[in-house]
Structure formats: C-alpha cells, structure tokens
C-alpha cells in the first residue's frame, strides 16, 4: 500500500502531502504519525498541505485528530501552506480546524514551533529566551 513519508528533522516531524488522500491513506497517516511522535519523542509536527487542493470534513477531522493526539503526547502541530481557495472553503463549510496552528510556509512553521516549545519550556525552566 502507498504511504505518506514522514521525515524527521531534529525535534520535529515533517509530512508533505503531495497526493489527493483517499480515506484509508489518511487514516494510515494519522496512525503512523502518532506512532512516530511517540517513537522519536518529537516536540512538533509540521504538515505541509501546499499541494492539497481539497480539504473536506473528513480530511479536516484527520488533521484535527493528529493535532489533538500529538498534543496529548506533548507535541504541537502546525499546518503549513494552505491554499487560499481551501481556506475560504473551510471557513464556508464551518470547519475552523480548532487546536491546529497555521503557518504560511515550512520555514515560518518551524519558527512558530520553536517559539511554542520555548514558551512551554520557559514555564517550567524559566528559560524562555534560550537559543
């Protein structure tokens, strides 16, 4: 079966979705990703959806699930590169992707993850400005 590759980049995991996901592939991605978060102890997940032209409520739910599950495992999720048409459609559909952070591109997404992680570490170690 086809699989969506998950890349490890230091403390983060990067998933680039390049094909239209049918349901089983999306569900497999959800399971794989959560496993990877646990295995690598990743602190952040970046999902690059710049090549995705359609997000319906099913896909939205998968993305939301990934974010919630990762959060439980102490990792933040950022969706990067959403197409304007997709954003407009999601809003009209009434799917705000709660709990998911967004970023314009992968670079900004990483920046966002770093600040998020620093903030949470800052709360415990009082070391908010490390770096």
């Amino acid at each position: 079966m086809e699989k969506i590759p998950i890349l490890r980049m230091g403390k983060f995991l990067l998933v680039t979705i390049q094909v239209d996901l049918y349901d089983r592939l999306a569900e497999a991605l959800e399971a794989d990703l959560v496993q990877m978060v646990k295995k690598t102890g990743a602190q952040g997940v970046l999902i690059d959806i710049s090549a995705v032209s359609i997000i319906d409520s099913f896909m939205g739910r998968i993305i939301g699930n990934i974010a919630t599950m990762s959060k439980i495992l102490d990792a933040e999720t950022v969706v990067v590169g959403m197409q304007p048409a997709v954003a407009i459609t999601l809003v009209e559909l009434g799917l705000p992707l709660k709990g998911v952070h967004s970023s314009l591109n992968v670079e900004r997404g990483m920046e966002l993850l770093r600040t998020k992680i620093n903030l949470s570490e800052g709360q415990s170690d009082d070391d908010g400005y490390a770096e």
């Binding site: 032209s53 319906d56 099913f58």
Partner: peptide, 16 residues
C-alpha cells in the same frame, strides 16, 4: 478556482 474548490468539496461531502 475558489468556486471549483467549493463545488468539489461539497461533492466530496455528499459522495461520502
């Protein structure tokens, strides 16, 4: 493109 995306998303929901 925006209307296309809306239509295909709607179709996707209904077909599901």
């Amino acid at each position: 493109l925006v209307n296309q995306t809306k239509l295909i998303t709607a179709a996707s929901e209904l077909v599901r």
